[in-house]
Design a protein around this nucleic acid. Sequence first.
DNA 1: CTTGCTCCTCACGCGGCGTGAGGTCCGTAC
DNA 2: GTACGGACCTCACGCCGCGTGAGGAGCAAG
Lengths: 249, 249
Amino acid sequence: MSLSLRVGQLAARAGVTVRALHHYEAAGLLAPDRTPTGHRRYGAAEVERLQQIVSLRSLGLGLDAIRRTLDAPGFDPAAVVAQQRAVLAADLDRLGALDRRLGDLERLLRRRAEAGTPISPDTFLTLTTIMNDILKHYTPDQLQQLAERRDALGDDAIREVEAEWPRLFASLGAEMDAATDPAAPAVQTLVARWDELVAMFTGGDAGIERSLGDAWEASGDQMAQMNGLSSERMRALFAYAQRARDAQP
Amino acid sequence: MSLSLRVGQLAARAGVTVRALHHYEAAGLLAPDRTPTGHRRYGAAEVERLQQIVSLRSLGLGLDAIRRTLDAPGFDPAAVVAQQRAVLAADLDRLGALDRRLGDLERLLRRRAEAGTPISPDTFLTLTTIMNDILKHYTPDQLQQLAERRDALGDDAIREVEAEWPRLFASLGAEMDAATDPAAPAVQTLVARWDELVAMFTGGDAGIERSLGDAWEASGDQMAQMNGLSSERMRALFAYAQRARDAQP
DNA sequence: CTTGCTCCTCACGCGGCGTGAGGTCCGTAC
DNA sequence: GTACGGACCTCACGCCGCGTGAGGAGCAAG
């Protein structure tokens, strides 16, 4: 007169659905007896095996891994756990990176909103595109350095710099429109400040600066849009600034 | 004479696969023109939209959410980011909880391996089952308290306690077999120690102790197996200990 | 005209089930 | 005996974001 449960009973007792039991059976994990009419009967052995299945599932193992584990009587528990932690660590890394990116974005949006120059939907899309380009052009190491650099600068400094870029472009644009000699002190001062701002973020790392150049090239149009300039004007500004740098004493 | 790319070209340029472009189109995200023979031609507008799609995807948005976002010209960037972070936070919580559980298991396995009493595959499965039962019977708050309690105790103390349980059960079993009066000092001392060990982990919290009782009831067989006892003997031991507690002066 | 590449449209696969659809079996009440 | 509600059965599609062929047509160059 041994234990014999029907699907619904076992499901209720084990805290799983009937469908899951069907699925486990189809996956070759659990093989109950059948009554002559085809109804499933679960004995003590199946109950125990189901508990093991459920527990291993709760550790994140897939049904395939569970089957392999349970069917290998001499498996190494430590290896199973370690393997699972490794898989999980990879997932956590990806999600963590995503979270950092979203956090960066959130802070930027908040800074701009608080500064009275909120990010419009269009600019937001442009911004995410730039972020994406940057991620393609920088190595993880470089990104790490940039993040540290930014944290070291602090929110207030970033706020000021963000506000300074448009002014800088405007001033430089005015000189360009006036056809000022790129070697003139006024232009030199502006370009020096430009390079200073860039250096603030790159920390003077040559590799990072080079990557920044690549990223700028890839998303020049977006950068222009972010600063309210046309692509052509942005390119002209870049060229003008470069002539100024070349004309340095 | 405007920009016109074919799938392969756009795919290469945007760093996605041709299949993905097909998929985005089927999902109603991207609608390129077609040549008379049915080949797709992507113009500047489609290139830009693809960049937006790719960037939003890189923030973790699903295709459906991307479509809703891009098709709502007045969406709120902050809301999109916040929503996405919320989703992500939930995922991170789940994975974090999983990681803690696996970490607990890993430490327990290591302690037992170092103590010379490694966990066998069978015992491991029993153990995960118990962990599962415990998780069902405790509230998250209680689990939190238990974890803190454990950290406060430290590895060495835990090691000693783990080694003490089997000895305690053996001693108490001997008294039971000898039919010693439950009120006898020797028995009282052992049961007091039992309750002390339990209290060490529950921190004396009544709610936690009650839940522990439930969990013990649910996985009594497994507890017995872990300590190398039959279910019947385990039950007898529990009953004997209870009589001792009732017989307290 | 042929070669070799790119493009096209189905359509299945994955992981772990949820969720019906349509039909059978079981235990109890009449 | 039979009628009824509930539990059970077996397909089989849906989800999410594509990967991965299969089988065939278009396209540029020799």
